[in-house]
Nucleic acid binder design. Sequence first.
DNA 1: CAGTCAAATGAACGTATGGTCAGTCTAGGC
DNA 2: GCCTAGACTGACCATACGTTCATTTGACTG
Lengths: 203, 203
Amino acid sequence: MTKEEVIKEFRVREILEAARRVMARYGMQGTTVDRVAEEAKVAKGTIYLYFDTKDELVHTAVIEGLREMTAEVLASDDPSMPPLERIRRLILAQFRILASNQDFLKTFIIGNSLDIELESETGQRELRVYAGHLDFVASVLQDAIDHGAIRPIDPQFAAFMLGEMLTGSLRRRLLKLASSPLESDAEAVVELFLKGIAAIPCD
Amino acid sequence: MTKEEVIKEFRVREILEAARRVMARYGMQGTTVDRVAEEAKVAKGTIYLYFDTKDELVHTAVIEGLREMTAEVLASDDPSMPPLERIRRLILAQFRILASNQDFLKTFIIGNSLDIELESETGQRELRVYAGHLDFVASVLQDAIDHGAIRPIDPQFAAFMLGEMLTGSLRRRLLKLASSPLESDAEAVVELFLKGIAAIPCD
DNA sequence: CAGTCAAATGAACGTATGGTCAGTCTAGGC
DNA sequence: GCCTAGACTGACCATACGTTCATTTGACTG
């Protein structure tokens, strides 16, 4: 890699990190190119040397953040675990990682981002990253189904619902509708996802 | 009610309905006062005779929409049903009502709205309407717990999660990640919420 | 029919913000 | 020590959008 490429990559990373910090602080609406430039300690024009439009900048920042998080979930997986325990750990890991990125994801979780315009190229890219993550979770669920550890449910559907429950429980905190400690929320999601609200315990 | 008040109420309703149509078509971001005025077939200035700011207009439109929907859910409830069947119908009703307001809620469901600024007065009002709805759902769940029909779970938590699952399954459709018919989605949510993914059927 | 007045209008204004570009700075080659 | 390429800057531009207000409209009154 040439020196120019190193510098370029450094700048890009620097700007993207600044963008994520601004998004965390001001939300999607309040994220302006001026603010990102100030946060990154570069001139506004500099940003346009590395990104064509604000849209590209913002979506790239989101995508990178998503990618890091999904990679972290993937890394925490241990396929040698018993299926149910594997699922439990998967849920807890997702919860932990989402919670620790709460600042950045606030805008995302509370609802303001993901204004995915399905038509736009950048929107499609965002969606594809998330879909990839869902595929992984679904594959873990499918594995559990194959082992008879859980009932035969559509794994893609269940994976998506699990994601909604996870972001939902964080959203609930952000809306100040919950005050329970984080850990108990995570366990509650595990419980609900695994056993539902049915009366008869299914252990 | 005086004639002036009738006219005023008519105008307000007209403008709010136009606002909801615009929100459905262009999303929260793309909803401008100009567009609402055009849709309502009034001049831009007229809108400011009935609403102080754009923010008030938009949030009022959302709140009214929410209120209508929650009222509809409430009306469909039949407390004399057996608890489990009551919950099942509650879920199906919510799903049906959400789905039929999909256009208006698209922006909401897909994530772009609810940029609830917890500090703002209007944001608080929006949240309170939703919280009221959650209270109702939670009370139905509490009733089921009292009858021993479901296990003793935090009803507020479960109610919120159920809401997330419902909007989530619609979001999944909007993101084109699902192609199954609407009804089967609704039943799948009922299944998952009631029984989780556990292997042993808990009927 | 003239007068009155509130409702409605839409041109105009201020501001915020995405995007541009002529000019400055600096590292590296000669 | 000068020169050049290109990274960087930030003042500037264009536009979109929320908000205002002087003017017009039209329904009602006497």
